[in-house]
Computed example of a mutant assay.
Amino acid sequence: MSARKAIFITGGGSGIGRAIALYFGERGWFVGLGDIDTAGMKETESMLPGGYHYSHKFDVRDRDAWDKALEAFSTAAGGRIDVMANNAGIPIGGSLIENSVDEIERCLDINLKGVLFGAQAVHPYLKKTAPGSCLLNTASAAGIYGSPGGSVYSATKFGVRAITESLDGEWLADGINVRSLMPSFIDTPLLDHSPNKKTNEGIRARVIAGGLEITPVEEVAEAAWNAVHGEKLHTVVGKTAKDLAFAARWMPGRLRKRIRGGGKMLGD
């Protein structure tokens, strides 16, 4: 087994996944990228130092594809996977009655089932490199408190939070750490998407109109490194997420009143 530690990252073709890849790659790790975006992965690879990287095109909704991707990456990395970042995800917004069946099912399949399938598939690899190996799930500030216009997305991110907490207990005996990231609005291409098919207004415009901060993606990458090497179960990233976590814990009634009264949009 190679002495060089290895991390596999879904959604590695852009955004948070790319930032995590660069952060770990710059610190000497062998980096694996998983995505449906081949061009995006090639661009990420071009930014990584040396030749210690590998990319694999696959869909996180396909359970069999997970096994093939991880087996190929483990072989490329010298027989090991120390960290798996369950990061692939898509946004969806707007009122529930505006969301189509296809939009709802796609978000649930990628954001939730994809995380479950990834965890299931990577377990034997992380057990092999334990103790100290880590499953890192990208949740969201939307997994702290649900807000109007975010019912489907929040449901998936509350689910990722629950998966993290469940596996934190399940995998303790195997020596595998399980962690989550809970970022707020991060400066990635996802902010330039529209919330759903019935609106052309981008998410970024709504965030700016709501007076909320957009956190540099590099902060999430640093948080990912700290989460993998630390003891904290959930790592909150960005001012909006931190404010929301504080309010949900210490002022739940006030937070509910604010949300119901049409306060600032919360989530990532």
Rank of each mutant, 00 (worst) to 15 (best):
V122M: 00
V31F: 03
E170W: 06
R106S: 14
A245E: 14
A247E: 11
T138F: 03
Y125A: 03
V101G: 00
L212P: 00
I203Q: 04
S95E: 13
A65G: 15
V207R: 00
E218R: 12
G94L: 00
G32W: 01
G78K: 03
R254K: 04
E219V: 06
V178A: 09
G34M: 04
H56F: 15
E222M: 01
I81Q: 00
L244S: 07
T199M: 06
T235N: 05
H229I: 06
P252L: 05
G150C: 07
E71M: 04
E43W: 06
L48V: 06
G261I: 05
N99A: 12
V60M: 09
I20F: 01
F24E: 07
A241K: 11
D64K: 07
N196T: 03
E103C: 09
L255K: 07
D243E: 11
P183H: 04
T199H: 11
D37V: 06
L255T: 12
A85I: 06
T75Q: 07
A205V: 10
D59L: 14
G202N: 13
K264S: 09
G150L: 02
G175W: 02
L135T: 02
K239Y: 06
G11H: 09
S46P: 01
I186W: 10
L108E: 02
G169Q: 11
G32N: 06
G238P: 08
D243S: 05
P131I: 09
A85D: 10
S151P: 00
D192W: 03
A155E: 00
V207G: 03
E231D: 15
L22P: 09
K127E: 12
A121E: 03
I9D: 06
T75D: 09
N137A: 08
A141Q: 05
S100R: 00
A69N: 14
K242Q: 12
A65V: 13
D59A: 14
C134Y: 11
K5W: 03
R18G: 13
A142M: 04
Y23T: 10
K257D: 11
A248R: 10
W171F: 01
R63L: 13
P195Y: 03
L233K: 14
E103A: 06
E71T: 10
M84V: 13
S74L: 00
G51K: 08
F246R: 15
N87G: 08
R27H: 11
E219D: 15
I7V: 15
K232I: 11
V122T: 05
K127D: 02
S46V: 08
I176A: 04
P91F: 09
I97C: 09
G169N: 14
V228T: 11
E103L: 04
V101L: 13
F8A: 02
V152F: 05
I208M: 10
G267K: 07
M84A: 12
M1F: 10
L135C: 05
R161H: 11
M47Y: 06
I97S: 05
F58T: 12
D82I: 07
S194V: 04
P124G: 02
I92C: 07
D35S: 15
